[in-house]
Amino acid sequence: MAYTIHDLARDAGVSSTTVSRVINNSGPVKDRTRAKILKLMEEKDYNPNPFARGLNNKSMKTIAVIINDIMNPFFTTVVKGIDGICQEQGFSFILSSIENNPVKERVEIENLTRKNVEGFIIVGSRPTVDDNSAYLAELSERYPVVLVNSKIRGSNKLYSVYIDEKQASLEVMDHLLSKNPKTVYFLGDVTWRTTHYKYKAFKEKLLEKGYAFDESLVIPCNYNYESGRAAVNEILSRNPGVPFSIFASSDMIAASVLKTLLEKGIHVPDEISLFGYSNMEISKLVHPGISTVDQKMMTLGKEGARLFIDLMDRKAPEKKNRKIPYELILRETT
């Protein structure tokens, strides 16, 4: 990676804001500190990109925001929250969608470092086998990095904002088993860490309540509006008999499940109960409305942006991981 303003700030023992003031000659800096920074710039052959300094000699104050999938409403809602705080605080951001591709994630980060961004907000679940975890830990030594909706252990400078996915899912299972105690199916892609937490809660609660657990109760699903249809067809092909329940790990999956069930003339919730996750707009627009976990997506984005700006101002919190409260939203599908 190129030597950046954050490297310069670290080596000088000051904030990146102070370095920016020296570069742009735009604010009060002690003469001794200014001389130290200018000397380091010369030693390191640091030549800031004129564009990165912005127009009228003002810092660009630009954040790189990386999301997994721009087509998923979860990410657009989180980004809206980030945008609100950025506008309040005079920041802008560059948005990159990596299409759930770890190779593309690294390429995009390398490209964005060359644009002299202030740091990174990375939104979305991490894979259970995360090839980039060490890379992101190293990145956080050079830039402020905030993870939204996930966390990576083993780094002192990676900060996270998320909800307790497992605890929320345990509450979902309690509700489903109280309403329809026969059988529950879990739909999702457990290769993603947040879904794996839901899966663990699903299994744990079944065993706790004295049910037999079998992996056939777990139906693999991608996070889109089509995967639920295939999952319903798979379940019904087994002739399971009704009633039973479905815990879909995303409202996108749940909406597709609901549409397919209704097309087949199956009554929800009388024959099949359905619970989604995230509280996307689609969950309240369909009929019957989908019970779901309100993941506070806008709040996740806002808190992620606030945390990032605190890190920029060298106000790092004592706790690296910040949990956001969630809420179970009970609608007609349960």
Rank of each mutant, 00 (worst) to 15 (best):
L258G: 06
V146C: 13
P317F: 07
S245I: 01
C86L: 07
L40P: 05
W192S: 12
E141F: 06
H287I: 11
N56I: 11
N57D: 11
G81Q: 04
A254D: 05
G210F: 10
F75E: 07
L40Q: 06
S150K: 00
A254R: 00
I37F: 03
E208G: 03
V190G: 11
F93C: 02
S160W: 00
G124H: 11
F275W: 11
G90K: 09
Q167N: 15
V22Q: 01
I219N: 11
V232H: 05
Y223F: 15
K264N: 11
P73Q: 08
E263A: 08
Y277W: 12
G124R: 05
N222C: 07
S169K: 06
N222Y: 14
V190L: 02
Y159C: 09
G27C: 01
G84N: 12
R153H: 12
V117H: 09
I290S: 02
N100Y: 10
N57M: 11
S15T: 15
F275R: 08
E208D: 12
E327F: 01
N57C: 09
E332I: 03
M297Q: 14
L311E: 05
K36E: 13
S133T: 05
I235K: 01
L285P: 01
V172T: 05
G289Y: 05
D174W: 00
Y162G: 12
A212I: 13
S227G: 06
F93L: 04
L285G: 12
P48N: 10
P50W: 10
I82Y: 04
F244Q: 01
S249H: 03
D7M: 01
D69Q: 09
G241I: 05
I98L: 03
K104R: 15
E171P: 00
T33V: 15
G154H: 07
Y199E: 13
T33L: 06
G276I: 07
S160D: 01
A254E: 07
T33C: 02
L328Q: 08
T260S: 14
A231W: 10
S237Q: 12
V184W: 08
S178W: 07
K58A: 12
S291I: 01
P144T: 07
V172N: 00
Y3Q: 05
T128D: 02
V107T: 15
S160E: 08
E204S: 15
L217S: 07
G81H: 04
C221N: 12
K264I: 00
K151T: 10
I98W: 07
D45G: 10
A168P: 03
G124V: 09
M297A: 15
H6S: 15
V145T: 04
I272P: 13
G119F: 04
P240A: 07
D214N: 15
M173V: 01
S237P: 09
E110I: 10
K284D: 10
N100S: 12
S155K: 06
V257H: 04
N56R: 13
S16K: 09
E263C: 02
K319V: 11
R21W: 09
I23M: 05
S20W: 02
E171M: 09
Y143F: 15
P269E: 11
L311F: 06
Y135L: 02
I246T: 02
V145G: 09
G265I: 03
L330G: 03
S237R: 05
K259E: 15
N49A: 07
P28M: 10
I37Y: 05
T4I: 00
R331A: 10
